[in-house]
Amino acid sequence: MLELIMKPWPWYVSGPLIGLTVPLLLLLGNKMLGISSSLRHTCAAVLPANIPFLQYNWKEEAWNLFFAFGMIIGGFIGGVLLNNGEPVNISPETVRDIEALGIHSFNGLIPSDVYSWSALFTLQGFVVIVLGAFMIGFGSRYAGGCTSGHAIMGLSSLQFASLITVIFFFIGGLLMTWVIAPWIYSFL
């Protein structure tokens, strides 16, 4: 049993479990799944700076910060305690494409070539770690949500705005993967 849990979980196990957080949060707390809001609440709590968009009672939304804290614990259980030490089982085509970008570390969940303290001070690490995350924070708030709030919660509740937003998430992702990232990596 433990051996089975230590292995990567297939999509047909994880996907439905992820979907169940939607009714669980609604029934147990009357809350809507959405993770990027935690970034806004943290800004409102730490550095509101008289910005109107950050002037609200973030404490009323504190559940979202507890949820985010729980995710860190979940990551520890899954990524440290239940880690089987094997590299992520991506397709051979993806391995080939990633190597073509100049990335050769395939151990762990993220490549140490770009995600490490030493890489942070290289142009490549800076672009991925700092610029990529900045766009995530900026874009998710501009779009009114991220993958959880729009793709899972929004599409589950049949929201047209979420459908359009998710389509543009993918347009942005494809543009980056196929056009911009190869160009960026060619300089690094």
């Binding site: 993770i35 990027s36 935690s38 970034l39 995710m71 993220i110 672009v127 991925v128 770690i129 610029l131 990529g132 995350a133 900045f134 766009m135 995530i136 924070g137 900026f138 874009g139 998710s140 708030r141 501009y142 779009a143 009114g144 991220c146 993958t147 959880s148 729009h150 359009i164 937003t165 998710v166 389509i167 543009f168 998430f169 993918f170 347009i171 942005g172 992702g173 494809l174 543009l175 980056m176 993967t177 911009i180 990232a181």
Partner: peptide
């Protein structure tokens, strides 16, 4: 915002969760 988020998602290889 959706396009910017998507570009960040692909570049960083992660979203907020």
């Amino acid at each position: 915002g959706g396009t910017i988020f998507g570009m960040g998602w692909a570049l960083a290889g992660a979203c907020p969760g």
